[in-house]
Amino acid sequence: MSKQAEYAALIRRYFATCNAGDHAELVSCFTPDAVHYFPAGLPEIPWRTAETIASKWVWCVENLGSQWTIEKILVSHDSPEAVIEWTHWKGKLGTALRGDEWYIFDEHTGLIKEIRAYYASPADKEVAINEIVDFDYAGRGYHLEPATGGEQ
């Protein structure tokens, strides 16, 4: 099986274990020090460690009736990364949230070491720059201001 197929299969397994609320299986999808980043507005973010990520998703299944569907998966052909579109169905609330996530995999173990979530929702007008919380944009080489001239 190719690395791309392995990464896509792991994402599908991760979503299946989220839907099942299976803490042990969720933990097994991640490196122990994994981080899940989110946009502003949620409590206690980002979620750090495989144990924390698993516990938070189990809480969502038990308390919100959460279930997730994967809409699309794209896996890079030359780096340990993938991006997906998903829908988070909150059955007990009668609502749903759509969004994207960027995945980074550990090249040695093949496990998920980072997820960055982006929501298809209105921007927070109280925040000058809408970003996922506690993500090192500067350290990762992201633009910190608009490009000028022909720069991209």
Rank of each mutant, 00 (worst) to 15 (best):
Y103M: 04
T148R: 12
W102Q: 06
Q67Y: 12
W57C: 12
H88I: 01
C60Q: 15
C60P: 04
S121W: 09
P122G: 05
L74W: 12
P80Y: 02
L93R: 13
D136T: 04
A128R: 12
A138T: 00
L93D: 12
D124W: 08
V83M: 11
T87C: 08
K90T: 03
C60D: 15
D136P: 07
K90L: 04
H77F: 08
T87A: 11
A128T: 12
T109H: 06
Q67R: 15
A138P: 05
H143D: 11
S79D: 10
N63D: 14
T109K: 04
Y118L: 09
E81V: 12
G149L: 05
A82Y: 01
N63M: 13
Y103S: 10
K72E: 12
W86H: 01
Y142H: 11
E126M: 12
K92N: 07
T148D: 07
V133G: 04
Y118F: 06
S121D: 07
L74S: 13
K56E: 15
F135M: 04
I104T: 05
G110W: 02
W68P: 01
P80N: 10
E145Q: 10
A123G: 00
V58N: 12
G150V: 06
N63R: 14
L111T: 01
H108E: 12
G94H: 03
G94W: 02
G91T: 09
W68S: 09
A138C: 00
V83S: 09
